[in-house]
Simulated scan of single mutants.
Amino acid sequence: MGQERIEIKLSKRKAVLTFLGAIAFVVAGIWMIALADNQHRFPPPLLNVTGYSAIILFGAVGLYIFYKMFDSKPGLIIDKDGIHDNSNASSAQLIKWEQIKGLKIEQVMSTKFILIDIHDPEDFMEKIGGLKKKLMKGNYKMYGTPISIISNSLNGDTDYLFKIISERMIAEHNKRDGVMATTQQQNV
């Protein structure tokens, strides 16, 4: 492997755009609540619930993105130990090479992401706490693995990240114990 340590930085441009989108949804939520009693097209309780939900959900997203805009740590580090993930709210932190069985790319609507299959997902999630654990359990139920990497917050697209992670994973697995890991580049 050419590089011992590869760092992928968080994309400040993507963070700013996401933050502005979150603000727009919070403003839309406020507008719905203000409009609820002064219109006759939609039931006021529906507009209130939708408005408050938008404020809470996108307000939380906006606060998290605002925090990440000032995060100086790399979003992803790929080194001899494994993948150090700091890219999103459900980031797994360190995923050791020996824990990884394989990788694959999935797509939901227009968003592509990398799923990292690991040997013992339940054990992996037991070491995580709080909201991160709940997000990982949701991932596990939907995709069969708790770990996903989305390039939305990173400098680089999904295909590029898949290529560098899979090359390093195969090299590290071959170097350590000769076990061949699997990768699946899916045409999506």
Rank of each mutant, 00 (worst) to 15 (best):
V49T: 06
V108L: 08
I105C: 14
K73D: 14
G62S: 12
K96E: 15
I100H: 05
F42P: 00
Q39K: 06
A89Y: 03
G102C: 07
Q99P: 12
V108N: 06
A28G: 14
K80C: 01
T111A: 05
F58G: 04
I30A: 15
Q39R: 09
P43E: 15
W31Y: 14
V49N: 06
I114V: 14
D81P: 02
P74G: 02
F66T: 09
F58H: 11
K101G: 00
G102N: 10
I33V: 13
I114W: 12
L63Y: 08
S91M: 07
L57A: 11
I77V: 15
T50V: 14
G59E: 03
V49W: 14
F113P: 05
P45L: 08
S72D: 13
A89H: 00
A28I: 10
M109G: 07
L76Y: 05
L57I: 15
Y52W: 14
P74S: 10
S87W: 00
W31P: 02
Y52G: 13
K104A: 06
N88Y: 13
I100Q: 06
F113V: 01
A34L: 15
I65W: 06
P74M: 00
P44R: 07
G51S: 09
D79T: 10
S90I: 04
A54P: 05
G62V: 03
E106F: 12
K112L: 02
G59L: 07
F66M: 11
L46E: 13
W97H: 06
P74K: 00
Y64P: 05
I95G: 03
L94A: 05
R41S: 09
S87D: 10
Y52A: 13
K96R: 15
Q93F: 07
W97K: 00
F113D: 01
I100G: 02
A28V: 10
S110L: 03
P45S: 10
I77P: 04
S72E: 14
L46I: 09
L103Y: 05
I65H: 00
L76P: 07
E106Y: 10
F66Y: 15
F42Y: 14
L47S: 06
I78D: 02
F70P: 05
I56Q: 08
W97F: 08
L115F: 05
Q93W: 07
G59P: 07
L94W: 12
G82D: 02
W97E: 01
E98M: 05
T50W: 11
T111W: 02
L115V: 04
I78F: 12
I95Q: 06
L76K: 06
I95S: 00
K104S: 13
G29V: 06
N38T: 11
E98N: 07
L47N: 09
K101T: 02
G82F: 01
L94Q: 14
Y64K: 10
K112D: 04
F113S: 11
D79P: 03
I33S: 09
V61Q: 02
S87N: 10
Q99N: 10
S91D: 10
F113Y: 11
M69I: 15
